[in-house]
Design a protein around this nucleic acid. Structure first.
Lengths: 226, 226
DNA sequence: CGCGGGCGTTAAGAACCCGTTAAGCGCTGC
DNA sequence: GCAGCGCTTAACGGGTTCTTAACGCCCGCG
């Protein structure tokens, strides 16, 4: 699984573990650092796409870390604080964090905010128009090389998920989660079936490419240059 | 940056000030309103390109304001809410907001979202300049190619919603929300029925176009060049 | 080579979606 | 009261889409 990488900076092992578990099961890669002094090294080495940063740390303040990182990277940072009123103070200080989470947090909340933060940056960085596949969520239309695809609702949602994270392998379960907002459970074959139809419609428009690849034992991967 | 105008609707002065500062320093013009009852007037006068709308307001609910604005303008609206779980509720209600921000928010987040929302609209609007369909909310009159349409109240409101956001797919539920200011619940077939009549009247005036398209499994889409 | 589980495809019934008709209801003006 | 109008919906029919059972192939492994 090649999910995006989240660096967790948290000195309390139980909490670090908790965060890590949530994120792993949501398909992210994680690395954990418990000491403020080690953060920069881990950052260089792990090259995370996002930071979960506890405010209270041994040897070095989370605030301080946040400031230094901001001078050299625009990686999204989510601050984890123990108390709500801290947040006001942080806002006042003009720390450049992207979001804040208060303890105690719920699994869903953490994952939701991480997703949101990552979605935001992936959006901004895409000058859009660069990918051969364009998704218009509002209009519920998808285009390949300018050609409009005639997709059913499920197909559209699936393609939409794929396009949102090109190159990533999605398990059938993850595809279900993302494509069925009601938390319906369907069989794995159902996904296969829709992928088959989707592939067919994609090939009808651009016969030479096969952008949806099967990954044996894992799921499917979308690769626009496939 | 050419100083697009952002109207801030927020009753808490400190937060309003904070928002205003962020946006000003990012090069936007701002105006602030603290009372729900004054929003429409300020909107007319200031002619903003975007609204930052707090959900909790004195005298008038942000939700309510959002709905009314949506019937007469397609200006992007970003809702500001105090808690994450509000967002789920709002999404369920099909409010026509473009984005949501949770308190506490960071400077970067607010500015990023405002930028994103503005980029989105400038991108999708104005290929020509004059839509063939004109809506006069005050007079409750609609024209196609200059021809006056004889619409019933429900038909007028529906068309009005469609025209406000061309190309976008509206579910039947969303159409109900927008076209019935009281929170009435009617059946899906009711919407179908009105759409049928609306289509008929539109075709009577311009026989070649079919601007209201059905999107199987999703709803209806208005596309003036359909 | 034989095994077992993962996978692609097919086909068919289930489920769902939608346009239309026609009828009932409330309201208005005569 | 009655005719006319607009709104809503029950009901129906047709079409589309979804899902799964079933089957056979393929892959990786011992």
């Amino acid at each position: 699984m090649n999910g995006e990488k989240v660096l967790i900076v948290e000195d309390e092992p139980k909490i670090a573990r908790l965060l890590s578990d949530y994120l792993l099961s949501a398909g992210y890669q994680t690395d954990t650092v418990g000491d403020g002094a080690e953060v920069m090294a881990a950052f260089e080495q792990f090259q995370p796409d996002l930071l979960l940063l506890d405010l209270m740390l041994p040897h070095r303040d989370g605030l301080d870390i946040c400031r230094e990182l901001r001078t050299r990277s625009s990686v999204p940072i989510i601050m984890v604080t123990a108390r709500v009123d801290e947040i006001d103070r942080l806002l006042g200080l003009g720390v450049g964090a992207d979001d804040y989470i208060c303890k105690p947090f719920s699994p869903r909340e953490v994952v939701a905010r991480v997703q949101a933060a990552l979605r935001r940056v992936s959006w901004q960085s895409q000058p859009d128009g660069s990918s051969p596949v364009l998704i218009d969520e509002d209009a519920m239309q998808a285009r390949v090389d300018g050609q409009l695809l005639d997709l059913t609702p499920v197909e559209f949602r699936l393609l939409s998920v794929f396009v949102s994270r090109p190159g990533r392998v999605f398990s059938r379960g993850q595809l279900m989660d993302h494509a069925y907002q009601d938390h319906r459970v369907v069989s794995d074959r159902t996904i296969d079936s829709h992928v088959k139809n989707l592939r067919q419609k994609l090939q009808a428009v651009s016969p030479d490419a096969s952008p949806i690849q099967s990954v044996y034992g894992a799921g499917y991967r979308f690769d626009p240059a496939g």
